[in-house]
């Protein structure tokens, strides 16, 4: 709600500020020292005496890898916890502080079960289909043509997501971004890392991450398009109300033979 109003005001007047001057220097230094430091460093603003320019940004990703009550994923022996996992504890709007809580609770649990699994199983790293696919991808990368700069496409994707698939969403905009993302998926073989080194190749890592990003972006978009309602951080200007009848459920996405499948799981709540 606050983020939406900030965004609207930004669009209208071009600037929104946070005023914490009334808190006083002693309180700010005691309770918000990092915020003061960041404002001084990156905005040249001292919040004790000045207004802080602000803009909404993502600081958490709701949902994640599906896990069972023991933090195990669909792949036995593979555990997930923290922000990357979906423990069904946050719903559509994670409340402040609950992420660090989840990291501690489920981190402890996943660690314990993973250790136990490792003790009970001889070979904990079975080659599977996905592993082979990833291996082929890395092998294939040397044939990628590098005509398109993936860093430029990365920035482009950030922009279209921020403007159409972030704080305020609607069907048309989401579908346009989906078309762009599918285009990027097609273009991936025309991109690639320029750095061919086998030593600490961050260019290659960033390219792999970009590939993962365009794969996941499709899941986010298809989920957002299918959920024709507004709930928590998912706000659709073309469907601003909550629709419990149809969508009081988690969206679950998976791939079958490379094809994205989606369902609403009421039981998950």
């Amino acid at each position: 709600m606050v983020a939406r109003e900030i965004l609207k005001e930004l669009e209208q007047s071009g600037a929104v500020y946070l005023d914490i001057r009334h808190l006083g220097e002693a309180f700010i230094d005691e309770q918000l020292p990092q915020e003061r430091k960041l404002a001084q460093l990156y905005e040249n603003v001292d919040p004790v005496h000045e207004l802080i320019p602000i803009k909404p940004a993502a600081h958490y990703c709701m949902g994640g890898i599906e896990v069972d009550a023991m933090s195990q994923t669909a792949l036995s022996g593979l555990y997930a916890c923290g922000e990357c996992a979906n423990h069904n504890v946050h719903g559509a709007n994670r409340l402040g502080g609950n992420s660090l809580l989840e990291v501690i609770v489920f981190g402890h649990q996943a660690g314990e079960y993973a250790a136990r699994y490792a003790q009970e199983h001889q070979n904990t790293c079975n080659p599977n289909e996905q592993f082979q696919r990833d291996k082929n991808f890395i092998e294939g990368i040397k044939y990628f043509t590098n005509q398109i700069d993936f860093y430029e496409k990365h920035r482009f994707m950030g922009n279209i997501f921020y403007n159409n698939a972030a704080i305020i969403r609607e069907d048309k905009g989401l579908k346009a971004v989906l078309a762009a993302v599918r285009q990027l998926q097609q273009e991936l073989p025309f991109m690639g890392p320029k750095d061919k080194s086998r030593t600490y190749n961050t260019n290659l890592i960033e390219f792999i991450e970009f590939g993962n990003m365009v794969e996941l972006a499709e899941v986010v978009l298809v989920s957002a398009i299918s959920r024709k309602e507004s709930r928590g951080a998912h706000f659709r200007s073309d469907a601003p109300q909550r629709d419990n009848e149809r969508f009081h459920a988690h969206t679950v996405a998976w791939k079958e033979d490379g094809v994205l499948c989606l369902d609403f799981m009421k039981g998950a709540l």
């Binding site: 960041l38 990156y42 040249n44 860093y151 320029k194 961050t202």
Partner: peptide, 29 residues
């Protein structure tokens, strides 16, 4: 008035993709 990380990132993403360095939070944390 740019940070060194911004400059290194610009070099890597615009001129020379082989330049190697580590970074993560971009906010001194």
């Amino acid at each position: 008035n740019q940070t060194l990380l911004e400059v290194l990132t610009a070099i890597k993403t615009e001129y020379d993709a082989t330049l190697s360095f580590n970074s993560d939070c971009r906010s001194g944390v």
